[in-house]
């Protein structure tokens, strides 16, 4: 363990402190800013609101972290969520006369969401891995397909869950245990499972290996296609989970459900430090990314800082800043 290697600067790989700290600092800065602007920012109700509404994108973004880490991309998740929500509502309304309002019909709806998500994810994965079509193209295609399917199912309008059913199902979004609402609990569980899977289990390593060099992964006994397929399938299931949380909130789905969720999820993943071209991913970073995105909206709504016309610009600037923070630190080290 002596000399340095030929020609190489003694750079080595230090843990880039800012690369890790960057997103966390950005989040803390936002929280401080929010608290300074409005005292109700840190109130229990507001924190619950923000966390619960982050849950949909957050759950999806955890799945997206794996897809991107393995070198893929999925643009279809927003449409997929809308489609699954629509399907779920149709099935539950149709089953109402036979099953009546009760737990079984809710379980049926959940099963429909999970199975539909799994199938949709497998379809994306199959087209990408087995047929070898670019992920961008495949998911751009399925994005359009699911979006128009939900428009078609809703006849151009809105699919609404039967009122009685909705009242019964509603607590899944708004209630919880010990004052923590269900979406937050589910989000937390998904994050913990994702973090363990990414950092502590074979699958996570295989995703990173596949994303950084497919050939090396193949020569290292990693089933590249199966790994990829599994990331898409997992993302599909998580979209299903997110939809299960989404439907009880408003009890409806339409063509405008889930618009741009895919870009928000991808942005959250990248803000969190996952590399867009694959090979490195971290689930906890994604959570930070999701929270940053939700907080920006929340703070802008809670204050009159800027014209609402500029909300998008503020978001854009913060996204780019968060990524620059990480990049610069990496270059310096």
């Amino acid at each position: 363990m002596t000399s340095t290697t030929e020609g190489a600067p003694t750079r080595g790989w230090k843990l880039p402190p800012m690369g890790v700290l960057g997103p966390i600092l950005a989040l803390i800065a936002l929280i401080v800013l929010g608290a300074a602007m409005n005292p109700s920012f840190l109130a229990y109700a507001n924190i619950t609101n923000v966390l619960a509404r982050s849950a949909f994108i957050g759950i999806i973004a955890v799945g997206m972290t794996f897809v991107i880490t393995a070198g893929g991309l999925d643009l279809s998740v927003g449409s997929m969520a809308a489609f699954i929500a629509g399907l779920m509502i149709l099935v539950m309304n149709a089953a109402l006369p036979t099953l009546g309002v009760g737990v079984p019909i809710i379980l049926l709806g959940m099963a429909v969401a999970l199975v539909a998500g799994l199938l949709a994810g497998l379809l994306n994965g199959f087209l990408i891995t087995t047929l070898g079509i670019e992920a961008f193209i495949v998911t751009l295609g399925t994005m359009g397909i699911y979006r128009s399917l939900v428009t078609w199912l809703a006849d151009g309008g809105t699919l609404s869950l039967d009122f009685g059913l909705r009242t019964f199902y509603r607590p899944v979004y708004f209630d919880g245990i010990l004052g923590v609402s269900w979406p937050i609990i589910v989000f937390a569980l998904v994050v913990i499972a994702g973090e363990v899977l990414m950092g502590r289990m074979r699958f996570g390593r295989h995703c990173a290996a596949t994303g950084s060099n497919e050939q090396v992964a193949h020569y290292s006994n990693v089933d590249v296609n199966r790994t990829r397929l599994a990331t898409y399938a997992m993302l599909g299931v998580l979209v299903g989970v997110a939809t299960i949380m989404y439907v009880p909130r408003l009890g409806s789905a339409s063509a405008s459900t889930g618009v741009l969720w895919e870009l928000e999820a991808i942005a959250a993943v990248i803000i969190g430090g996952t590399v867009l071209k694959g090979g490195f991913g971290r689930v906890w970073g994604t959570v930070i990314g999701v929270l940053i995105l939700s907080l920006i909206d929340n703070i802008l709504n809670l204050t009159d800082l800027v014209s609402p016309y500029l909300n998008g610009a503020i978001q854009g600037v913060i996204i780019i800043l968060a990524v620059i923070l990480q990049r610069e630190s990496r270059a310096k080290d």
């Binding site: 428009t151 809703a154 006849d155 151009g156 309008g157 809105t158 339409s254 063509a255």
Partner: peptide
């Protein structure tokens, strides 16, 4: 039909 009114 991308939102309710347009659907109508």
């Amino acid at each position: 039909a991308t939102h309710g009114w347009a659907g109508g």
